[in-house]
Design a binder for these strands. Sequence first.
DNA 1: TCGACGATTTAGGTATACCTAATAAGTAGG
DNA 2: CCTACTTATTAGGTATACCTAAATCGTCGA
Lengths: 231, 231
Amino acid sequence: MPVRRRTNGNSESVDNYLKAILSLGGPGEHRVTSTALAERLGVAPASITNMLQKLAGAMEPLVEYERHRGVKLSSAGKRRALEVVRHHRLIETFLYKVLDYPIEEVHDEAERLEHFISERFEERIAAKLGHPTIDPHGHFIPTMEGEMPAQASIVLTEVVDGGTFLIDSVDDRDAETLKALEAQGIKAGARLKVKRRTAAEGCLVSVGRSAKALDLSREMAGDIRIVPVGS
Amino acid sequence: MPVRRRTNGNSESVDNYLKAILSLGGPGEHRVTSTALAERLGVAPASITNMLQKLAGAMEPLVEYERHRGVKLSSAGKRRALEVVRHHRLIETFLYKVLDYPIEEVHDEAERLEHFISERFEERIAAKLGHPTIDPHGHFIPTMEGEMPAQASIVLTEVVDGGTFLIDSVDDRDAETLKALEAQGIKAGARLKVKRRTAAEGCLVSVGRSAKALDLSREMAGDIRIVPVGS
DNA sequence: TCGACGATTTAGGTATACCTAATAAGTAGG
DNA sequence: CCTACTTATTAGGTATACCTAAATCGTCGA
Ligand SMILES: [Mn+2]
Ligand SMILES: [Mn+2]
Ligand SMILES: [Mn+2]
Ligand SMILES: [Mn+2]
């Protein structure tokens, strides 16, 4: 039995499958395809099928799986996925606020540590941080009970008319992009004016009270979630 | 390739073998037997032989191994072992000082996390703690360069005459024992008077300025390292 | 010097989590 | 309603790190 199984009982790999299904299933928790999972996790589709069958066939199944019809999380699977997301986001917040990490480095560290911290560690950093509800990228931190509000924001690429918005959150998975965006002032909480859409689904914007126009690529715009602002 | 390989390149298991060889080899760095390793790591002797052959046969061998003659660390192996010990002891210090863990809980958490933290994490907690040189159990923390002073202390079971001592360090691997000892005031830095040896290699002592005699079992005495004190 | 006995190694096998190549199932266009 | 094509699954393999049982090796006492 080589692969580390945590107190919890499942391996790091299993955790990662559950998180990916949670994330790809979206707020509607719709079924996720093998291909989408394969791409997200960077493994071959055949490996996905294997793992899903194992997860679905356990005594306490973590997913509901039907051949050729994708998967969704079981309630046990969802519980564990949210637990891991809670760990991830608390760790990110801790690294940023207490250990003064640069914003673009917190994700990779959290991605590893999320699987290995104890409940005590989780509880202690949460307490130290004053039980935060939002992580440094603007994402909700699931509660200890596994509750997480649905995201009300929209992706910047979905904006049709121009207007003024608040940046709700920024995707943290690509450190390069995150660092570049942050250097332009694009981070959770900042104000953002959308001038117009550009070719190839890009976006011309300005940030804060600056008048300088920024031309965001489609990739960058896709990493930014915003909410309309009254003023 | 299932088993997590860190930035460093070796797996958690490999790290644990290296640490065990460092610890069992003692300050003299003498050869360690398969049996001793099997017992320390809780795996079958056959598994030890397997792993040692693999470690010795790598392009950059981590151990020097000769059939039937035990192993010692190569210089690369020693470097990595000390790096992991540094992680372990820094993490313990951090958990104790910053996250207010009870002393008996730091070891198990550190035992897991030591393999997964980045160099950045190591550097940041070291800085936060003011670059400590001693962990909460009284053990030296290896430097970033992999230097660690040899222990000058002796084990309480080795005392022949009675006398007054300072507690240098307390073994941290058994949480139960550690908690019990701490409850009696037996912890690094405390003053300890040895009255006399008892049957079965136990020890009759008193702690601090208390006159109350404590009867330590051989097991407990074996976990305590002391240094003679002038006064 | 010869066993006996314990220590160690070899042989053969398991589980996890991957992979590639071959096959089968869905799905949409004609 | 039947291909052509894409998506998914099955089949067969690899590496890590374990295990048990069956050899062997080394040493120590007679
Ligand atoms: Mn993240
Ligand atoms: Mn938790
Ligand atoms: Mn420890
Ligand atoms: Mn390090």
